[in-house]
Simulated scan of single mutants.
Amino acid sequence: MRIVTKDVILVTGADLAPQALALLTDFDVVYAGTGNECTEDALEALCRQHEPVAIIVRYGKVSARVIGASPKLRVISKHGTGIDNIDSNFAKSHGIVVRAATGANAAAVAEHTWALILACAKNVVQLDGRMRDGHWDKATHKSLELKGRTLGLVGLGAIGRRVADVGIALGMRVVAFDPYAASVPESIERRALNEVIAESDVLSLHCPLTADNANMINAQSLASMRDGALVVNTARGGLIDEAALAEALKSGKLRAAGLDSFQVEPFVAGGHAFTGLHNAILSPHIGGVTSDAYVGMGTAAARNILDELAVTA
């Protein structure tokens, strides 16, 4: 009797939302394991063993080695929006489609962006620590009021626009740089990148990481910013020169920074300049990690695979 086997979808993670799995019942789903287990060697070995037709990318780097290890591979689908951990050029050159779950975690990331902005502006973390140490700083503390301030956005996609909406509701002026945006709402002023950086009281990053914009926030651009400004990054760590940002925080050039992504992840606290700075508020790249976004990203990633496989069938 002939054994009929299903095509394999490899997930570079340990799980997938049940709603996403329900869409993939015609496939065998193989998990690579937790984030630490998704090494390049491990992913390459799994591709050679199972020859997946698709990969859902949650953790790890899907390099040329990994992509080339499966002769059946036809689509790589990101469980999220940023595809900088996928060798898209190599995939494209081999006829393999790369898709992202665009907008699936936009609400979650936008909300976390505002959590960081408000924590920075209102000194939430520092005041909590002071209270727990027995201090009552009402007579000496002054927080930053956002009404009338300028919110600068680098990137005006689904996340950036949600962040802009909240800023406008708070009475902020909003300026933005996005060379790829076909249109910009009338309530947002479109500016060149250097103008957005220089004019911002709050600068928030919402763009993908590319070779052209790596370290766009560096010593020179930070020096052009308004004294006492805030920098918030819920996009990619590679957009910021971390040593330069740490120096700007240490010197008082910047009031504070809220950071959800880093040059090297997982972030290692020992010896890193940010861990010794009370005005650097850190979170472990969880802006898009909510129960709703988990389902949204999983189902969007699954649908992207089904759509592409149907086209190429």
Results as ranks from 00 to 15, higher is better:
residue 176 A to T: 00
residue 39 T to S: 15
residue 82 G to F: 08
residue 294 Y to P: 06
residue 24 L to E: 01
residue 150 T to K: 05
residue 90 F to Q: 02
residue 77 S to P: 08
residue 35 G to I: 00
residue 207 C to V: 13
residue 97 V to R: 12
residue 22 A to C: 06
residue 220 Q to Y: 07
residue 249 L to Q: 02
residue 295 V to Y: 01
residue 84 D to Q: 04
residue 67 I to G: 02
residue 26 D to E: 14
residue 149 R to E: 00
residue 298 G to M: 03
residue 73 L to S: 08
residue 147 K to L: 05
residue 102 T to K: 13
residue 27 F to G: 09
residue 44 E to R: 14
residue 298 G to L: 01
residue 191 R to T: 00
residue 1 M to C: 12
residue 200 S to P: 11
residue 244 A to H: 02
residue 218 N to E: 07
residue 205 L to E: 00
residue 42 A to G: 05
residue 177 F to K: 00
residue 245 L to H: 04
residue 138 K to H: 14
residue 229 A to I: 10
residue 153 L to V: 09
residue 24 L to C: 03
residue 131 M to R: 12
residue 270 G to Y: 08
residue 167 G to C: 07
residue 160 G to C: 09
residue 292 D to C: 06
residue 142 K to D: 09
residue 128 D to P: 04
residue 178 D to H: 06
residue 143 S to P: 14
residue 272 H to T: 06
residue 306 L to S: 04
residue 53 V to S: 04
residue 267 F to T: 02
residue 45 A to V: 01
residue 305 I to K: 06
residue 127 L to Y: 05
residue 143 S to G: 15
residue 169 A to L: 07
residue 149 R to W: 08
residue 266 P to Q: 05
residue 22 A to P: 11
residue 51 E to M: 09
residue 153 L to S: 01
residue 218 N to G: 02
residue 312 T to Y: 10
residue 263 Q to N: 15
residue 54 A to N: 05
residue 4 V to T: 10
residue 20 A to R: 05
residue 18 P to F: 07
residue 40 E to Y: 01
residue 112 H to C: 13
residue 61 K to T: 10
residue 249 L to N: 00
residue 82 G to T: 00
residue 63 S to F: 06
residue 311 V to Y: 14
residue 235 A to F: 10
residue 144 L to W: 13
residue 283 S to W: 01
residue 198 A to R: 12
residue 115 A to R: 08
residue 223 A to Q: 12
residue 230 L to W: 08
residue 211 A to E: 14
residue 258 G to Y: 04
residue 196 V to M: 04
residue 301 A to Q: 11
residue 39 T to Q: 02
residue 159 I to M: 02
residue 239 L to Y: 11
residue 102 T to A: 15
residue 255 R to Y: 13
residue 178 D to G: 05
residue 88 S to T: 14
residue 107 A to S: 14
residue 280 A to T: 07
residue 305 I to Y: 03
residue 224 S to M: 10
residue 3 I to G: 09
residue 276 G to Q: 11
residue 91 A to Q: 08
residue 200 S to F: 05
residue 288 G to Q: 00
residue 72 K to G: 08
residue 63 S to C: 07
residue 198 A to K: 12
residue 298 G to A: 09
residue 281 I to A: 06
residue 309 L to Y: 04
residue 218 N to H: 10
residue 156 L to I: 08
residue 168 I to G: 07
residue 157 G to Q: 06
residue 287 G to S: 11
residue 268 V to R: 15
residue 255 R to C: 07
residue 220 Q to F: 01
residue 126 Q to D: 03
residue 210 T to R: 09
residue 278 H to Y: 10
residue 168 I to E: 02
residue 236 R to F: 11
residue 15 D to Y: 13
residue 187 S to R: 14
residue 240 I to E: 02
residue 303 R to C: 04
residue 129 G to F: 08
residue 48 R to P: 03
residue 57 V to D: 00
residue 279 N to W: 10
residue 10 L to P: 06
